[in-house]
């Protein structure tokens, strides 16, 4: 990056093309990561919303033995909607940080829950991640959730650092 010593301002002609490209790539990557995470969460929430799906999800939550079965209905009803709204928030740059905070919170909680029930207690249970059966809770789920957690972080970090277009330097 070169600056014009006479004016103490950036030489836009010299730096703009590369930085603009970097800006675009970072932003595109940010959107891609956000889309992947949000898409997964929307798909997961779809399988948990509805009278039958919510009942099934309550059973899956009960299988974890973290909550008493009597209380598993409450997260079974509310959690899918948090997933939907957090996913939508993650998609839009203006609300991305708020969505990412919720996503990260949920993912961390899911990782801890799977670790506690499947690894620590040794329960052979379905993860209930998408409301449908067929995905065993274990290291595989922990790895996938960790990946989603990293992608969530990147979607925010890349977007924050995205505006790499040169800032005007302070005149001395």
């Amino acid at each position: 990056m070169t600056t014009n010593p006479n004016t103490s301002t950036l030489d836009y002609a010299a730096v703009k093309p590369n930085d603009t490209r970097a800006y675009s790539v970072r932003n595109i990557l940010s959107h891609v990561f956000a889309l992947v995470v949000a898409g997964f969460f929307l798909y997961a929430a779809y399988g948990k919303i509805g009278p039958v799906n919510a009942r099934q999800f309550a059973v899956q939550i009960g299988n974890y033995k973290i909550l008493d079965a009597a209380y598993s209905n409450i997260p079974a009803i509310i959690l899918p909607f948090i997933e939907v709204y957090a996913a939508l928030a993650l998609l839009f740059p203006k609300t991305r940080k708020a969505g990412a905070i919720l996503m990260a919170g949920m993912l961390l909680f899911f990782i801890c829950a799977v670790f506690y029930s499947a690894i620590h207690l040794g329960l052979s249970i379905d993860c209930g991640c998408t409301g449908k059966g067929g995905s065993k809770a274990g290291w595989g789920v922990i790895a996938r959730n960790t990946g989603l957690l990293i992608a969530t972080g990147l979607s925010v970090w890349l977007y924050q650092c995205g505006p790499c277009a040169p800032k005007t330097s302070v005149d001395s």
């Binding site: 509805g50 009803i77 909607f81 709204y85 928030a89 708020a98």
Partner: peptide, 22 residues
């Protein structure tokens, strides 16, 4: 503030879905 708003809206939607649908 955004996080709190999302949580509140989720709870309201969940309660409404339970009462009117589930």
């Amino acid at each position: 503030f955004g996080v709190i708003v999302i949580l509140i809206v989720s709870v309201i939607t969940g309660v409404a879905a339970k009462a009117m649908w589930y």
